[in-house]
């Protein structure tokens, strides 16, 4: 321990007023292959590591920019906010937790949705935001998803739902559980109108979200290496008292087991969805233009991605 500490390289001391401080965060390190990736390149790849294909989590707005025709998206969510029906308190109050999630994301729920076009095809896109309380589904999330599906039915649009959620939200008790049924009922209206419903399961999609609308897309797409399943891995390990096999409950695993139609790299989602939707609606094969990904201004931080 002491030896290790002795030989450990000391982090270079950051001096005040270093000239480099003005340099933006240009590179970041891929957690999987350790490659130094130029941030601009990472953004152009929709946060997929260009070296090894590792899928970083992607902010919901960026995901939608990467899917829809530029400038076509109109947000329709943001109409409801969570209450605290159970007056839930554990180590902290639910109200305080909600407040933190709102501050962190600038949104009222873990759902971001709206209408737009994808290669000219009219769609509603609904994305769950893992940043908001782990993407968990409470009453307001269930309501936003239900309304997004209803909007698609009303306006004859295909429905795309991207899931990233730990499951039903504990802090709203059985009310959260009921959202699984509520959203499924809405999907029936969509089905009655013959409108496609495609789900993209991002990391992670588990619990009550996996076991309701995520699993029953007309077509179910998994993002590479996304964790998917009903029970969490810790719960399973405690139940069966053995460690889990490698790759268990990942997208590729469920593709092999016959539960996911395909695993698709995020950079191909736009083209794949356009082709699938056009085929399901028996329309001409659409022209899919590559997207020019707008790269946001990087935050001012130290050199080599070291944050101050």
């Amino acid at each position: 321990m002491t030896l290790e500490r002795f030989f450990r390289r000391r982090p270079p001391q950051q001096k005040e007023n270093m000239a480099n401080d003005d340099l933006p965060d240009l590179w970041s390190k891929c957690p999987k292959c350790n490659a130094q990736v130029y941030n601009k390149e990472l953004e152009q790849n929709l946060r997929v590591c260009p070296k090894c294909g590792y899928h970083h989590r992607i902010p919901v707005k960026r995901r939608i920019e990467g899917l829809l025709d530029m400038g076509s998206f109109q947000v329709t969510s943001g109409k409801v906010k969570a209450k605290d029906p159970l007056e839930f308190v554990d180590t902290d109050t639910y109200v305080a937790k909600l407040e933190r999630a709102r501050k962190k994301t600038g949104r009222e729920s873990a759902v971001y949705a709206g209408r737009g076009t994808l290669a000219g095809l009219p769609v509603v896109v609904c994305v769950m935001d893992f940043e908001f309380a782990g993407g968990s589904m409470g009453s307001s999330e269930g309501e936003e998803i239900t309304r997004a599906i209803e909007l698609a039915s009303q306006e004859d649009r295909s429905m795309i739902l991207v899931t990233a959620s730990g499951g039903a939200r504990m802090m709203e008790g059985a009310l959260s559980l009921m959202q699984m049924a509520k959203t499924t009922f809405a999907l029936e209206q969509l089905a009655d109108k013959g409108l496609p419903y495609i789900t993209i399961l991002a990391d992670p999609t588990t619990g009550g979200v996996a076991a309701s609308f995520a699993a029953i897309g007309d077509i179910v797409i998994g993002e590479p290496d996304a964790l998917i399943g009903f029970a969490g891995q810790r719960v399973i390990e405690q139940t069966v008292r053995q460690s889990l096999p490698d790759g268990f409950q990942r997208s590729e695993f469920y593709e092999k087991k016959g539960f996911i139609d395909m695993v698709v790299d995020r950079r191909q989602h736009r083209e794949t969805l356009a082709n699938l939707i056009a085929a399901l609606r028996n329309q001409a094969k659409p022209e899919v233009t590559a997207l020019e990904i707008k790269v946001p201004e990087p935050p001012r931080t130290g050199l080599f991605g070291r944050r101050k």
């Binding site: 076991a211 029953i216 009903f230 029970a231 399973i236 139940t239 016959g258």
Partner: peptide, 12 residues
């Protein structure tokens, strides 16, 4: 919540 149950698509 077991391995076989997950393999056989419990969520689905």
């Amino acid at each position: 919540p077991g391995i076989a149950a997950e393999e056989r698509g419990q969520a689905w």
